[in-house]
Amino acid sequence: MKKTAIALFGLLLLILSACGSSDDSSASGSEKETNETVTYESETGAVEVPADPKRVVVLASYAGNVEALGVDIVGVDGWAKKSPVLAEGLEDAETVTEDDVEKILELKPDLIIGASTTKNLDKFKEIAPTVTYTYNKLDYLAQHVEIGKLLNKEEEAQKQVDDYKTRAKEVGDKIKAKIGEDTTVTVIEKYEKGIGVLGDSWGRGTEVLYQAMGLKMPEKTKEVTKKDGYMMISEEVLADYVGDYLVTSQYSDQDNSYQESELFKEIPAVKEGHLLKADANAFLFNDPLTLEYQVDFFEEEFLK
């Protein structure tokens, strides 16, 4: 009887030991998966980044790209926070700037995304793997796929791009069928020291209108925006650059009194009711979420 009890006790110890070993192995495997990295070929060279990033800080205009791919953002710049399109996904993210090194350290990011012009990059690289992009080095769709590569979600990013191109073309075809193939559209934004006439890749819906939908820009506007992507002009000469339709990207808290002047009201596009007023905060970026919003806006405004 005593020998039987000892044998049973020994068997119990073996079972408990095996369970403990299994748990340790599982925990170790989970930890390994969490810490797994991949090599990403960035503009500045190879960077070891998380295979499945969980806490990303975005210090450039790519917050919507990251959000669209379902990756959690713990820190983001103030411009992205102002976007009503991105607001829900950024609700829990802290507002940070390139100068907030200590604040970003406290957020414990596992990946930081910035621009090539972002300050304090050396300090950020000490906090977490840091990847930067040069604005407009890639076109807006290639940029999204590239961010998909960084986040290990390239296939998902490519699908989002393909879906957007299909829908934007469909809506663009409907718009051109209504207003005419040769009808021209101008996009502007008011700044402190004048008005910016925008080219075909300067956000504010320009990529959607000109690239995806295939709408035309006035030749004079195309010429002056070719070099820098935009051109600053005065209110007095605005009419020279406005096509058959005018899109104004504007902020609710800015002075838009120029639109009350007789000079503005006499612009043919304005007189004919071809003025589309867009929320600048919702039109600032060109990520998939913002692009979807812009396609919806243009479909409603042009086809109503």
Results as ranks from 00 to 15, higher is better:
residue 3 K to E: 13
residue 3 K to G: 08
residue 7 A to Y: 12
residue 8 L to Y: 10
residue 14 L to G: 09
residue 20 G to L: 05
residue 20 G to D: 07
residue 24 D to S: 15
residue 24 D to Y: 15
residue 35 N to Q: 11
residue 41 E to S: 14
residue 49 V to I: 07
residue 49 V to A: 03
residue 49 V to H: 01
residue 66 V to L: 01
residue 70 G to W: 06
residue 78 G to W: 05
residue 79 W to I: 13
residue 83 S to Y: 00
residue 88 E to A: 14
residue 89 G to V: 05
residue 99 D to N: 15
residue 100 D to S: 04
residue 101 V to W: 00
residue 103 K to Y: 08
residue 111 L to Q: 00
residue 117 T to N: 12
residue 117 T to M: 10
residue 122 D to V: 02
residue 127 I to C: 06
residue 134 T to P: 06
residue 140 Y to M: 12
residue 143 Q to F: 03
residue 143 Q to R: 05
residue 152 N to Y: 04
residue 159 K to N: 04
residue 159 K to L: 03
residue 162 D to K: 06
residue 166 T to I: 13
residue 170 E to H: 06
residue 173 D to R: 06
residue 177 A to W: 07
residue 178 K to P: 06
residue 179 I to V: 14
residue 195 I to Q: 12
residue 212 A to S: 11
residue 222 K to N: 14
residue 228 D to F: 11
residue 232 M to E: 14
residue 233 I to T: 11
residue 233 I to G: 09
residue 237 V to L: 10
residue 243 G to Q: 05
residue 245 Y to N: 05
residue 246 L to M: 04
residue 247 V to E: 00
residue 247 V to W: 00
residue 255 D to K: 01
residue 258 Y to P: 08
residue 265 K to R: 11
residue 268 P to L: 13
residue 270 V to L: 06
residue 277 K to L: 10
residue 286 N to G: 09
residue 292 E to M: 03
residue 303 L to S: 09
residue 303 L to F: 08
